[in-house]
Write a protein that binds this DNA or RNA. Structure first.
Lengths: 271, 271
DNA sequence: TACAAATTTCTCACAGTGTGAGAATCAGGT
DNA sequence: ACCTGATTCTCACACTGTGAGAAATTTGTA
């Protein structure tokens, strides 16, 4: 991705960890042989990598020649959830907000991760009711979305520190321009300034067709964006009045989450 | 764990991966310094390990000296969920089973992992209704339970291959005896045989006080235990008739999950 | 049961790299 | 701006991760 003067090659552990990112939705099963070829290492080393990862529980041998991501990942994600103070605060707030809505909707908690936006938690009010009907939001814990489309993303994008904005422009100029945020860097910054002026962002059909997202940023104690909270509606809002009502509710929920921080870290740890 | 003649020490990648298992519920935040001391490596190497893991997204720098498990884990777990054929099959079955219950309950899908049992998925019928009330089950995706207590575990234990049984006896004799499965290995095997005779297992207050678990094993296409499906009831069942009814329902659900396999793997892959 | 073909581990020598100690640099809080 | 602690850098050395191929194991099939 970024390359400001390659000092030294990837370390051994880098490559072992890199194996994990081979496992995608399109190809969830890998053999040591194929992985070795892909990573440009010998077959023996491919087996060594796989054995290391299996020993750590990060991979699991399904059959013969077929490996999938392993249970250690499930266990680690449980640790992540248990240790995430924002999630703990947000969950009841999200459930309360959802209960006030009288239509199919999803509430999303998201954060930014590597020039993208990741969903951390989702609450839905149609859990398994109508089986065949389409879901309100394709977003789900662990899924990524582009930084430039959708209320959820844009509200985070708008408040990113200057350094991050510069990097985004450098790495995704094409995409930014395609989204209509001006042909030049100055236009981009102006668009972000405009986004910042509104306490929430409302966008329609930018991620999922027909859906409307209403999102508010969540800031941490130091004033940096920590993520966003959003409501996704299945159908377009009935009226401008309805939008206003939701806007206020989302904003209030975000403030409530922010208010809860402070009891999260143990500061008394003597290194 | 097992040690049949230590050939060589842990490799570099082993140690890097080992860092991840330092992050527990009791201590979710680590500094490179403390981790280095714990892993018996130099401070510089501690920083190297942390930087490697941060680059992979497996760790995240919270502040100064404070690192937590990172977003890559969340993303990977999403891949695990998306790629898990059993989960995909089981989820609707679990929801349907839950909807038939007219009392507070939880449905659990579990699997065995490293001499323990891990929860893969949970469905509850009291999601956020009464806020302050106790949850039906403390089990949750990614959490582990001992192999010898609770219906969920015992039903898996009963059908484990002989090799695994021997290892369990070797590594957990104390615990097994404490659970009442005989003082000798023969008694243990007899207890397992008895468990195997019943198609489901019903246990009370072995994991969570006052709760009753009703579990059925799930077998894969080759006839090995793949995991278990269980119902956890908040209150003891009203009657023996109620138990029978649930027993049949759980068993039927497990069979339904088993029936769905076969369309999961792509066998036509030319290595 | 035995065979053939694939997968997986092992052996070994060598180059490459991960390592520790300490110096140098950087960042944060006051 | 300061000072303290956190983080990176430098460098030489030992070690260990690596590739090629042989050996062993497992799997599918006759």
């Amino acid at each position: 991705m970024k390359d400001g003067g390659a000092k030294r090659g990837p370390t051994s552990a880098d490559k072992v960890l890199g194996v994990l990112s081979l496992f995608t939705a399109e190809r969830p099963v890998w053999s040591p042989e194929r992985a070795a070829r892909r990573m440009r290492v010998s077959l023996a080393t491919g087996y060594r990598y796989f054995n290391t990862l299996v020993a750590a529980g990060m991979l699991e041998k399904l059959h013969r020649n077929r490996y999938v991501l392993g249970p250690a990942i499930v266990e680690l994600d449980r640790q992540v959830r248990a240790a995430d103070p924002v999630l703990k605060l947000a969950q009841p707030v999200m459930q309360r907000l959802l209960r006030r809505l009288r239509e199919p909707a999803a509430i999303l908690l998201c954060r930014h991760y590597r020039q993208k936006v990741m969903c951390i938690h989702q609450e839905t009010n149609r859990s398994g009711e109508a089986v065949s009907s389409q879901p309100v939001s394709s977003y789900e814990r662990g899924t990524l979305r582009p930084m430039f489309r959708g209320a959820t993303s844009k509200v985070i994008l708008a408040h990113l520190p200057a350094r991050a904005i510069v990097n985004l422009w450098r790495d995704h100029r094409r995409e930014i321009v395609a989204t209509g945020m001006g042909p030049g860097f100055e236009d981009f910054k102006a668009a972000l300034r405009a986004l910042r002026r509104e306490p929430v962002n409302v966008s329609s059909s930018e991620v999922d067709e027909g859906r409307t997202g209403i999102a508010a940023p969540i800031f941490d104690a130091t004033g940096r964006v920590n993520g966003s909270l959003s409501v996704v509606l299945l159908s377009p809002p009935a009226s401008a009045r309805a939008v206003t009502r939701l806007t206020i509710a989302v904003q209030a929920a975000a403030r409530e989450i922010e208010r809860g921080r402070g009891a999260a870290g143990d500061k008394g740890s003597k290194k």
